[in-house]
Structures are given as structure tokens and as C-alpha cells.
């Protein structure tokens, strides 16, 4: 870890001193030893605050949409592999110029679930990391300007693990049972919109729920309004969601949002062979088409 932090700090220092970036966004120690938080560094002398470990759960790419952050111009961003895919998608969707970002990729060996860390869990194991880490294909970020290698060993995966196992379970259910399942989940929603705010790809300056002429999505925090919101959020992210899981982590009432996001990602891959956030030169899946696309459901 020490070696990693040194390299991270030196890279950041160099970037700031050479005026290649005006701001570094990275991780620093949080409110307790098992929590990390974001830090915004403009002074090269402050880089000692930077550090990285298995509790760096946040996706810092979320800040790229903030007007206050955009003002800084060129930004250096510390990202894990999964978060880096968000940067790629932002570039693909013309929300970010590749010239304006220096990607400091860190090799990540899995992030410990925050709710477990809050109870004192400190070890990276199959049972303590997020589901996304079990299926992770990007322990080393796909695209980076600087890479900080990890000196930690990869965690071991034993036996037949099934991340997001609930998806298959839901697929096998009858439509009524699925309806029951989601109704129960969406009932909990308090419409704080943290799922939207925590998402690096929800960058609309005015979200569809805030448009009221017409009012597409009902504002009530009851069954109907909650279901409509959760459905449209998932739809607007299908084919775009990069699976960082921030929506689910942020949700204060524990709605399993990744079950929807992951299902849609699988569907899009199955139908169109597209994986989001992989290639900055690829066209977004719904920004293009193929004459031979799936047509079976159309009369």
C-alpha cells in the first residue's frame, strides 16, 4: 500500500507542478479508519493527502458532471478500473474531452462493501467485496495516462460463485411474481434521487423527473411514482451503465438497483453485442443501429 500511495502522490505532484492539470481528484482518509472519501487538490504540497485502499468505494468520475468541478478545466482523476469505464462513456457521449482529463488509473483488487466495513470488516475476500468485483474484468483500467500498480495479491475465488444470482431467479419467475418482487422493493423508495446523483452517467442538467410540462413521471413517493421513476432511471441507463454500483451503494433504503442495471447490460450485450465504457471510439449502442438487429418481437 505504501508503495502505491507514494506513486500516486508523486504522479499527482508532477501533474500539478507541471501545470498539466489544475485539479486532482483522489481518495483520502475518511471519517473513520475504514472509510475513504474524495479529496480535491490544487496545491502540489497537499498531495500527501492522497491514498488508496480497498475502502475506496466511491466512483470519482461522478464529479466530472459538476459545474463547480468543470470550471477547473484540466483535471487529473484517480480511478479504479470500473470507474474508468464511466470516463470512457462520458468521452463517447461528448460530455468530456479526452484532452481535458488525465486518467490516473489504479489497479484495484476489489472494494470491500461499505456496510460491512462500517461493521469493522477490513479484509478483501470473496465474501466481503461487491458483486461487481467478482465479475470484474478491469482490475487494471482499460485506458489510463498513468498507472499505479497494486502490490496486493488478488483475492481468491473458490467454488461456484454466482454474482447477481437473483437475476436468474427473477428471470425464472412468473411475471406476477416479478411484479410482486419489484413492487415490494420500490415501495421502500423515498425518492431522494441519490441513485441519480451518485451516477457518473446521469449528467442531464434537468432530469426527466424535474420536467413538468408535461409531468412525465408522477412526483408522489408512493407505488406509482416510485415505480415510474425506477423504471425510467433504469431505461435511461440501459446500454450505458458501466456497473460501478454507486446507485445501489448510495441508496439509503437498499433497493437492489444493480439487479436491474446488470440485467439490462446483459440484455444489451446479448442482443447487440455491446459492452458499455470499453472503447472511447465506439458509438453508443442506442446512437447507432444495424439493419439486421433483433426483429422477432415485431409483427
Amino acid at each position: 500500500m505504501e508503495k502505491m500511495n507514494d506513486k500516486l502522490q508523486n504522479t499527482a505532484k508532477e501533474l500539478l507542478e507541471n501545470k498539466e492539470v489544475n485539479l486532482i481528484i483522489g481518495f483520502t482518509k475518511g471519517s473513520n479508519p475504514l472509510r475513504m472519501r474524495s479529496v480535491f487538490i490544487t496545491d502540489p504540497n497537499d498531495v500527501s493527502k492522497l491514498s488508496f485502499n480497498a475502502h475506496c468505494v466511491q466512483d470519482l468520475a461522478v464529479f466530472l458532471k459538476k459545474p463547480e468541478v468543470k470550471k477547473f478545466g484540466k483535471i487529473g482523476l484517480v480511478v479504479k478500473g470500473c470507474d474508468e469505464k464511466a470516463v470512457n462513456t462520458l468521452i463517447q457521449e461528448y460530455q468530456l474531452s479526452r484532452d481535458n482529463i488525465k486518467i490516473i488509473g489504479v489497479e484495484c483488487r476489489g472494494a470491500v462493501k461499505q456496510n460491512l466495513a462500517d461493521k469493522g470488516e477490513d479484509s478483501v475476500k470473496q465474501s466481503t467485496v461487491y458483486d461487481k468485483c467478482l465479475v470484474c474484468e478491469v482490475h487494471t483500467p482499460l485506458l489510463y495516462d498513468y498507472l499505479v500498480e497494486s502490490d496486493e495479491p488478488a483475492f481468491e475465488i473458490n467454488g461456484d460463485i454466482k454474482p447477481y444470482a437473483k437475476i436468474e431467479e427473477l428471470d425464472a419467475m412468473s411475471v406476477e411474481d416479478r411484479n410482486m418482487f419489484w413492487q415490494k422493493e420500490f415501495e421502500k423508495c423515498i425518492k431522494c434521487y441519490a441513485c441519480r446523483q451518485a451516477c457518473p452517467l446521469c449528467y442531464c442538467t434537468r432530469c426527466i423527473v424535474e420536467k413538468n410540462t408535461p409531468q412525465w413521471i408522477e412526483t408522489n413517493i408512493e407505488e406509482t411514482g416510485n415505480a415510474q421513476w425506477n423504471m425510467i432511471r433504469a431505461y435511461h441507463l440501459s446500454g450505458r451503465c458501466i456497473g460501478c454500483g454507486e446507485c445501489e451503494r448510495a441508496c439509503p433504503v437498499n433497493i437492489p438497483l444493480m439487479l436491474v442495471n446488470e440485467k439490462m447490460a446483459r440484455d444489451v450485450f446479448e442482443k447487440f453485442g455491446y459492452k458499455s465504457g470499453v472503447d472511447i471510439n465506439a458509438k453508443p449502442v442506442f446512437g447507432t443501429f444495424d439493419a439486421n438487429d433483433f426483429n422477432e418481437f415485431i409483427k
Binding site: E176, D177, R178, M231, Y235, F272, F289, D293, N295, I298
Partner: peptide, 15 residues
């Protein structure tokens, strides 16, 4: 067609 392929799957998945 692309949009509705996805939207249909989503509707069905959400019950």
C-alpha cells in the same frame, strides 16, 4: 427498434 428491444425487456423484467 433498438430502443424498444431494450425497453420491452425492461418492462417484462419489472413485472
Amino acid at each position: 427498434r433498438r430502443k424498444y428491444t431494450a425497453f420491452r425487456d425492461l418492462l417484462s423484467y419489472l413485472g
